[in-house]
Simulated scan of single mutants.
Amino acid sequence: MIIVGLDPGLGCTGWGVIAADGNRLSHIGNGHIRTDAKAALPERLVALHGELLGVLALHLPEAAAVEEVFVNDNPQSTLKLGQARGVILLAAASLSVPVGEYAPRLVKKAVVGTGGAEKSQVHAMVGRLLPGVKIAGADAADALAVAITHAHHLASARAMKGRAA
């Protein structure tokens, strides 16, 4: 199964694509989508949407996973993050790609083993789980971590369903 993980941001959205075959994971691609900070908000959202549709069309994922919005000290930043996240959800839904949503602490716990892990620890564990991967930056590492989390949750759900049958 091809899974795209997305770490939303208006200025920079990270993306990471993995293949999951049972518990085996392999890296397909990763990167980031940047928007022009000088452009008006609607233009930035359109640019994010278009670039993301390009990533989805290139990799044809069967599932997507997105990090949930966390509330930070600046309400304006939280609103902009929410708007970028809405565009991401729209892009995936418009291509009929089912989306899983995960809290940042849950992603850290799934990948590192503790919900309070530092970004550097997440980056390091992604490198261990996907040997040989060249990560495009912190946002791409977070996106790959979200994809890995989704892969683990899907595998667990399938195992539970198999036991129930």
Rank of each mutant, 00 (worst) to 15 (best):
G11M: 05
G50E: 15
P98N: 03
L6S: 10
R163A: 12
D36W: 11
P131W: 05
L52P: 01
C12E: 14
P131I: 03
L89V: 06
V46R: 14
V146K: 00
S26N: 10
H49N: 11
A103L: 12
D21R: 14
G137Y: 02
P75Y: 10
G86D: 08
L106W: 13
Q121W: 08
T35H: 11
G113Q: 07
A103F: 05
G14R: 00
K108Y: 09
G5K: 01
A136W: 00
V87M: 12
W15S: 03
A20E: 00
A93K: 14
G5Y: 01
H152P: 00
S96V: 04
H150G: 04
T149C: 15
R85A: 07
I3C: 09
A151D: 02
H32W: 13
A39G: 02
A124S: 11
A159N: 09
A136Q: 01
W15R: 02
L53R: 15
H123Y: 14
L53T: 09
A165V: 12
I33R: 07
A141N: 06
G5I: 04
K119E: 13
G16T: 05
E67N: 11
G132K: 08
G127R: 08
T35P: 15
Q83C: 07
A20V: 01
R105A: 13
A159S: 11
I148M: 08
V66G: 03
P98C: 05
A124F: 15
G86I: 07
L6I: 15
A84C: 02
S26C: 12
P42K: 11
T149D: 02
P8E: 10
I28G: 01
C12R: 15
C12P: 06
R24S: 09
P61W: 11
E43V: 09
F70V: 10
H150T: 02
V87R: 01
V111H: 00
